[in-house]
Computed example of a mutant assay.
Amino acid sequence: MAVEMENQRLEEEIFNLKLLREKKVANWDSEMVEMHRENLQQMAQLQADIGMLRRDVVRMPPRALQGPPPFVPLMPPPMLPPMHPTKKLPGRPEAAIVTGGLDSMRPPSPAANRHIMEPLDALGPAPYDPVAGFVIFYDFLLGLEPTFQKVRLLSGLYSNGHRMGQTTSLPDEPCEMWHSPQHLTNAPKGNIAMLATKQPIPRVRPASSIALVMELQASGGFNPYGQVVQHLSSCGWSKLDLFDQHNQVLSGHWTLPVRALPLRPGLSTGQLNTVPQVGKAELFLRVTNARDAELPSLTEIDPRNASLYQYPPLMSNSPAAVIENLTHRLAFHPSTNAFHMSLSPYTDYVDPPPVEELPNQQKNSQR
């Protein structure tokens, strides 16, 4: 009897322990469900706050009315390649430049979280930080030849006609037919190529002589001998001055018509306007300071907004001398990273020819 009573007591204790463990497991599961529900609510609230902040940024008054933001130096990106000192050649400017990598802006974020187009004043003049540099957004190409099948853009920085560092190559993009809306009466007709790529360029000292030179390569169509072009070959180029006389980046939405070859980086803006345009091809891009690149990165790229892009201003301090060295005239010489593009005339301005000095004998006779 004593053994049987002890066994019964032990069984009751075991049963009570099982009930207690099952109760603890049930409580633990309910706590986990409650924590998961609270996390979901917090995430939904954060997403709503982010959407509200983005709408507030779009509704902000233009920066020009508020005055420029305070100048805050930014640290360079953490993954920048190390800079190597380059040998200074006679007659060439000394410049320290690291060209950043290319960032594709595709696939875009959901349409509800994108802006159709940031305000034009968002890319207005602002103090420039040489460490952070600037960002170039290559949006799209319009007016391409109907026979073009694929295009590639190559870019490089030049100072007074001399190349600075290496060139950069954008990804190859297919060409498609594009029918402009009826309200865009001045939009160029022809094929379209969506580039949708941004390129950060840090560590560039500001100077009015620095320009972005681009070359356009295309496959398709026919060469002067009537043969079909199977491989990508150069068909035009363009140039964009990057800094004004106040050492500020020329931020804005720019339209650059494609110019005919040969490529001559030493041409001033006025002289560039005398070079014929290649058909109706035009490049649409944006330039902004690196610290202001967050909002343009969220912008939806739409060729229907082509009318918001403008031709660059005529720089009053552009060098009048034309540097035409044979290496520039014959080829762009792209490296593993390279690309090029072109501009078209948008003004009747033509720089006057340089005044030639008279020989000493004629000077003496005139005296």
Rank of each mutant, 00 (worst) to 15 (best):
V3D: 13
L17Q: 00
L20E: 09
R21L: 08
D29L: 15
S30K: 12
E31L: 15
M35Y: 10
R37M: 12
R37Y: 04
N39Q: 08
A48R: 14
M52P: 07
M52T: 11
R54N: 13
R59K: 05
P61Q: 05
P70F: 13
V72E: 15
M75V: 04
P76I: 08
K87G: 10
L89Q: 09
G91C: 12
P93W: 13
V98H: 12
V98Q: 13
A111D: 06
M117D: 01
A122H: 06
P125I: 04
D129V: 06
L141Q: 06
L142W: 04
L144D: 01
Q149G: 04
Q149D: 03
K150M: 02
Y158G: 07
Q166C: 04
T168P: 07
D172I: 10
M177F: 06
Q182V: 12
T185L: 07
A187T: 09
G190P: 01
G190M: 04
N191P: 02
T197Q: 11
P200A: 00
I201A: 02
A207W: 04
S208R: 12
I210W: 06
A218M: 03
G220E: 00
F222L: 15
V229Y: 09
Q230W: 01
S233C: 14
Q245P: 10
N247P: 14
L250W: 04
W254P: 01
A260K: 05
P262A: 06
R264N: 02
G266E: 03
G266P: 03
S268T: 09
L272P: 02
L272F: 11
N273A: 02
K280M: 02
L295T: 04
A306E: 08
S307L: 01
L308F: 13
L308G: 06
L308Y: 13
P312K: 02
S318R: 06
A320D: 15
R329C: 08
R329I: 00
R329D: 10
A331Y: 12
P334S: 12
F339P: 09
M341L: 09
S344V: 06
S344I: 02
D351V: 01
P353T: 09
Q362T: 10
